[in-house]
């Protein structure tokens, strides 16, 4: 197994763990945490391809990972704000109970 394949497998496993969490947890904050894990797994893929790719001096994968980190930070802030707003409205963070679109 090449080093690149090792990193890709770790990233795939982390992505699957995050997906399982996003699909099975009831707490909305835990779903957001799982989505963050999936984003991080994608970042690991980008960095691994940058490191073992044919043109690492172009910095493409690294730049993509840095922008991805910035976008993920914005996503976390807005997502947690939405969770707090929903909690204030419905007094729960259980997404199995959030089955109405009308307030």
């Amino acid at each position: 197994m090449t080093p690149l394949a090792g990193y890709l497998l770790v990233a795939a496993l982390l992505f699957a763990i995050g997906l399982a969490g996003a699909l099975t947890r009831r707490n909305a904050i835990l779903v957001l945490i799982s989505i963050e894990l999936m984003l991080n797994a994608a970042n690991l893929n980008l960095i691994a391809f940058w490191r073992y790719g044919p043109h690492p001096e172009a910095l493409t994968g690294m730049m993509f990972a840095i922008f991805s980190i910035a976008v993920a930070a914005a996503e976390a802030a807005v997502g947690l704000g939405l969770v707090i707003s929903i909690y204030r409205h419905a007094h729960t963070t259980d997404i199995d109970l959030m089955n109405r679109m009308k307030g």
Binding site: A20, L23, T24, R25, R26, D96
Partner: peptide
């Protein structure tokens, strides 16, 4: 865990 945890695990 949600009621549909088995399907979620299977998909993951």
């Amino acid at each position: 865990f949600s009621r549909t945890w088995l399907a979620g695990m299977a998909i993951a």
